[in-house]
C-alpha cells in the first residue's frame, strides 16, 4: 500500500519512535547502570553513563563460573535448537508424506502438546528426568517380574533401574526438544512443496530418506534458519527448567547466574555488576540474530518457492 498523505507518514514515524523508545529504554538503562562505579546508590535514577562500563564488564567476566555458565547455556541452546529442528523435521515429514494407521491421532497428539509448555508439566518431567528408567521400573513392579525372577533364581531378587538426568546436558536439553510449533511450521512448508517433486524423485530412484535429505532438506534451509534463531533464543532464555534440574554450580546456565547476582537480604546490592553480567549474557543471542538475520527475514517472508 502506498500512502502519500503527509500526516500519515508522521503518524507512523511517531508510533515507530515511541515503540523504539519503549523497547530500547530498559536496555539503555541496563548499560547505564552497568557503567556505574561500585557502591553507587542503588535506588537513585541515573540517565548518563558513569564511565566504569568496561571495568564492570571485566569484573563480571572474571567472576567465578561465568565463562562456564556461558558455555553451559551455549550447549543447552544449541542442543535444544538442533534437537528441535531435527525432531520436528522428521515428524513433519512423517505426518505429511506417509499414510499410516493413526496418522491423524499422531498429528493431534502433537497438536495437544502445544497446550502443555514445560511449566505445566514440570513435576512429571522432573520425575522422569530424575530417573529416566522410572517408567520401566513401574512396568517391572506391575508385572511382578522381581518375584518371577526370584522364583526362577531360588533366592530374593531386587531389580532397581536408575538413570538420572539431573546435572547433565542431556537432562537440560532432552525434555525441551519436542516442539509442536516447529513441527507445524515444517508441515505447512512441506504442504506447499508440489507433489510432483516427490513423484519425480520416485521415478529418479530416490527412496523416502533420500528424498528427505537430498531434496526436502535443502529446500527447507531458509525456514530452518529462521526457526534456529527463535529456538536458540528460547533455549538460551530457559530459566525454570535449568533451575530445577541442575544443582551443581558447574552445570548452571548464565540466566541463573544472572539471577544469583541479584541482591539477597544479607548482602550489598551490586547492581552495576548484575547489569554487566546481564549484558554479557545477552551478547550471544544478539550475535546469533545478527548472523542469521538475513536468513531469518527470508525464512519468514519466504518468497522463494
Amino acid at each position: 500500500m502506498i500512502e502519500r498523505a503527509h500526516w500519515f507518514d508522521r503518524l507512523t514515524y511517531g508510533a515507530l519512535i515511541v515503540g523504539a523508545i519503549l523497547v530500547c529504554m530498559p536496555i539503555y538503562y541496563a548499560v547505564i547502570v552497568a557503567s556505574m562505579p561500585d557502591g553507587s546508590e542503588s535506588d537513585a535514577v541515573y540517565l548518563l553513563p558513569g564511565g566504569h562500563l568496561f571495568e564492570n564488564l571485566a569484573n563480571a567476566w572474571n567472576k567465578e563460573g561465568l565463562g562456564r555458565q556461558l558455555f553451559n547455556s551455549g550447549v543447552m541452546a544449541v542442543g535444544v535448537t538442533v534437537g528441535k529442528i531435527a525432531i520436528s523435521l522428521l515428524s513433519a515429514f512423517a505426518i505429511t508424506y506417509f499414510r499410516f494407521r493413526f496418522r491423524m491421532t499422531a498429528f493431534w497428539l502433537i497438536f495437544i502438546t502445544l497446550m502443555l509448555p514445560v511449566e505445566v508439566r514440570i513435576v512429571p518431567t522432573f520425575e522422569v528426568a530424575a530417573n529416566a528408567l522410572a517408567p520401566f521400573q513401574a512396568i517391572i513392579d506391575l508385572l511382578a517380574i522381581e518375584r518371577v525372577a526370584g522364583w526362577l533364581a531360588g533366592h530374593e531378587v531386587d531389580i532397581n533401574l536408575e538413570w538420572s538426568l539431573l546435572d547433565s546436558y542431556t537432562g537440560l536439553i532432552l525434555p525441551l526438544i519436542a516442539s509442536a510449533t516447529a513441527t507445524f511450521l515444517f508441515r505447512q512448508f512441506f504442504l506447499t512443496v508440489p507433489e510432483e517433486l516427490c513423484e519425480a524423485a520416485k521415478i529418479d530412484g530416490a527412496g523416502p530418506m533420500r528424498f528427505f535429505f537430498r531434496i526436502l532438506l535443502p529446500m527447507s534451509t531458509t525456514s530452518m534458519a529462521a526457526l534456529a534463531v527463535i529456538l536458540f533464543i528460547f533455549g538460551w532464555n530457559q530459566y525454570l527448567w535449568p533451575l530445577l534440574i541442575t544443582t551443581e554450580p558447574e552445570m548452571t546456565t548464565v540466566v541463573i547466574g544472572v539471577a544469583r547476582t541479584l541482591p539477597t537480604e544479607d548482602a550489598d546490592a551490586q547492581w552495576n555488576l548484575t547489569m554487566a553480567t546481564a549484558i554479557l549474557a545477552t551478547l550471544p543471542p544478539v550475535a546469533v540474530v545478527l548472523l542469521l538475520q538475513r536468513w531469518f527475514v527470508k525464512g519468514l517472508v519466504d518468497a522463494e518457492k
Partner: peptide, 12 residues
Amino acid sequence: AMVFQNYALYPH
C-alpha cells in the same frame, strides 16, 4: 521417464 505438467524440477 516422466515429464510433468509443472516440470517438477528440484528448485535448489
